[in-house]
């Protein structure tokens, strides 16, 4: 305790370095993070290296099992499943991460505001009720009918529909996060350290950023991991209904739903996209676990 050198060294380290060192010591988180980066690199650079185009049809090679030419086999039109999984990963990951980010941001923002400011609680929570009650499919039909052509004209078919899909998923999946965050904030607000901080005149914005947010990190992290899976699956449902990406645009969710009927005929087709989704979600989950531990000052340094 009286060793001054140690104290100075600790002071020299910034808070983020501290978080990083804690994160690094979390084995699951490191494995998760490296796997996630691996998958990202694979789907970014893979399609450039793999010679077969994902949409190239070689009808003579339909419904094949794994071989050297097609390591993951082929689908009912003879498209290469490996190329499709790579190409699908780009879209799925991008949609998953951005949509989850949007939902998380909205959910946390509304949840914290509702929990912290009593005046905003009732209107914001009724807004949440409204969104929870909206029939998602007709809502999708309406949004897509109103904006598809405009966005397609402004950003081209792919980017336009990407923005639309992300927006749709984000806007329809923030409510649970908001409810949960609000609940936590409500009980945090009554705890001593918050009362103490308030009594020394901490302004609201700093109060929220310094004291409230770090303490609601764990439900947010859980929402994030579940959210990324939900976003990937929801995207497949939207595309499946013909409301999302065009049909020649592979995504993991679509690959999985398209190949469900071929499960007994050609199991590889189902296994790979399914595994890709599961492992991505799993790795994000471990990253979330590590981040939560790293951000919690009570665990840090244990």
């Amino acid at each position: 305790m009286t060793d001054t050198s140690e104290i100075t060294e600790e002071k020299a380290r910034s808070q983020w370095a501290d978080v990083w060192s804690q994160f690094r010591s979390h084995r699951g988180a490191m494995i998760g993070a490296s796997f996630f980066i691996f998958i990202c690199l694979l789907v970014i650079f893979g399609p450039m290296l793999w010679p077969i185009e994902p949409n190239f049809i070689d009808i003579r090679a339909k419904n094949q099992g794994p071989s050297l030419a097609h390591p993951f086999g082929t689908d009912q039109l003879g498209r290469d499943t490996f190329a499709q999984v790579l190409a699908g990963g780009r879209v799925s990951l991008l949609v998953g991460v951005t949509a989850m980010g949007l939902a998380l941001f909205l959910g946390t923002f509304i949840g914290v505001l509702a929990g912290y400011f009593k005046r905003l609680d009732s209107p914001l929570m009724r807004l949440t009720d409204l969104f929870l009650a909206l029939p998602i499919l007709p809502l999708l039909l309406v949004i897509i009918m109103l904006f598809r052509d405009t966005l397609r004209a402004a950003f081209g078919p792919e980017t336009g529909i990407f923005l639309l899909v992300v927006f749709v998923i984000g806007i329809t999946s923030w409510m649970h996060t908001a409810r949960i965050v609000r609940g936590d904030v409500l009980s945090l607000k009554e705890q001593e350290f918050v009362l103490a901080a308030r009594s020394i005149g901490t302004p609201s914005h700093r109060m929220i950023l310094r004291h409230i947010l770090p303490n609601v990190m764990s439900p947010i992290m859980v929402s994030a991991t579940l959210g990324i899976a939900t976003a990937i699956i929801t995207e497949s449902a939207i595309s499946f209904l013909g409301l999302g990406f065009p049909s020649d645009f592979p995504t993991w969710g679509r690959l999985l739903s398209d190949s469900t009927n071929f499960m007994t005929l050609n199991p590889e087709r189902v296994i790979w996209p399914g595994l890709a989704i599961s492992l991505t979600v799993l790795s994000v989950n471990y990253i979330g676990d590590g981040l939560r531990d790293a951000l919690d000052p009570r665990i840090r340094g244990r």
């Binding site: 949409n55 049809i57 009808i59 009912q76 039109l77 498209r79 020649d248």
Partner: peptide, 8 residues
């Protein structure tokens, strides 16, 4: 599927 084939 038909769309994909015709497109090609």
């Amino acid at each position: 599927d038909t769309q994909a084939l015709v497109k090609q």
